[in-house]
Amino acid sequence: MLIKNASVFVGRSFQKADLRFEGDTITAIGHLDGPADLDAEGCCLIPGLVDVHTHGAVGEDFSDANAAGLQPMADYYAAHGVTSFLATTMTLKEEVLTPAMHTLRDYKRTGGAKCAGIHLEGPFLSYAKRGAQAAENLHLPDAALFDRLNEASGGQVKMVTVACEEEGAMDFITHVSRYATVSLGHTSCTYDQAMEAFAHGASHATHLFNGMEGLHHRKPGIIAAAMDAGASVELICDGLHIHPAVIRLVHKLYGDKLNLISDSLRCAGMPDGDYMLGGQPITMKNGKATLTGTDTLAGSSISLLDAVRNVVSFGLPLADAVYAASTAPALAVGLTDVGTLQTGKKADLLVLDRDLALKAVFVDGRRQA
């Protein structure tokens, strides 16, 4: 397959070039001879997006242990520009999480986006900063519980969110960081506690500003600690969780460590109404999802491509937005064959027009949309 005349995202910038892939692998990028299979004149060619924090979409949730719901989610992600994702679970009891792990372990995709692993967002979180996580399901950091869940998943856990101020957290982080990316989140930790956690092996921060103490000039907390430690950080860029000015600020502070995420729920791709999240009722109105009867935000209803479009509209350069939604998250969780357009890498790529409308999606070299 030869795509010609595109503005191709290579490294950190765009260049006018052609791209060829054979089977599922990119084989050449440059000025290539031969007739075009796809003429992308006036369009940009970017890596497939990598969403490391998404709970679900189209009425389905990864915590449900519903095998029949996995393929519709994979199809939804691909139709919205995501070619790889981490299936993200909620704070739930072990007896609920274990069948969810088994379901993901046994999943055989027939198309759509690739499940590149699992993100355990809990249950090792803080009561004070639990947000939309159910309090009765919280659990102290427990390496043995992580091991059981990871084994149940077939070793697919790629990220774990933990509140590092909780009892046993440092030993937990030391252990888990041997197997997965440890992210600090839903936490009341201080700057010093966060720095200790990063020294023990944590390397990421879950949805920065949400579910943690804010940045204060005498209490810098996790936000400043993540910058000092060189950690990667997530932002939910739906225009509701984070003000555009703060998104611009984080972009300038963290640079290529910024990861865009959707934090999408089962209500993504669905009409306004009532849904469930981690055993709790949520309500979506005008695309805003909250715990029912409260103002507590409960994830988002956007796609990761929506996040890219949003941050560009907020003033970030397109190249930086693309990097933050593809290369940076792949690096954050150790995915080495996706997230970049480079010879030898997987042919996961998107064609976007000047308005960032999606024109084509390829996953492992197969056209999805």
Rank of each mutant, 00 (worst) to 15 (best):
D24Q: 15
L318Q: 07
L140H: 13
A197Y: 01
S313R: 14
L2C: 00
C115P: 08
E95N: 12
L265E: 01
G315H: 06
I261K: 04
V361G: 00
A128I: 12
V176F: 03
V82R: 04
P47F: 02
V10A: 09
H80K: 11
G11A: 10
P244G: 10
Y76C: 03
P35R: 05
P141S: 07
P99S: 13
A321H: 03
M276S: 15
G214H: 05
I242S: 01
G59H: 05
F14G: 01
F62D: 01
R12H: 14
C164D: 11
T27G: 06
R12F: 13
G214A: 14
V50W: 03
G211A: 06
G56K: 02
I26L: 14
D39K: 00
G221Q: 07
S303H: 03
Y76N: 09
N150H: 15
D295R: 14
L149H: 04
L149E: 08
A67D: 13
R266G: 11
A324E: 03
R367L: 10
H139L: 15
H217E: 10
M101C: 10
T91F: 06
H241C: 12
F209K: 12
G344C: 06
A268E: 04
V58I: 06
S300V: 07
Q15K: 12
Q156S: 08
L277D: 01
L258G: 00
V10I: 14
A152K: 06
L92E: 08
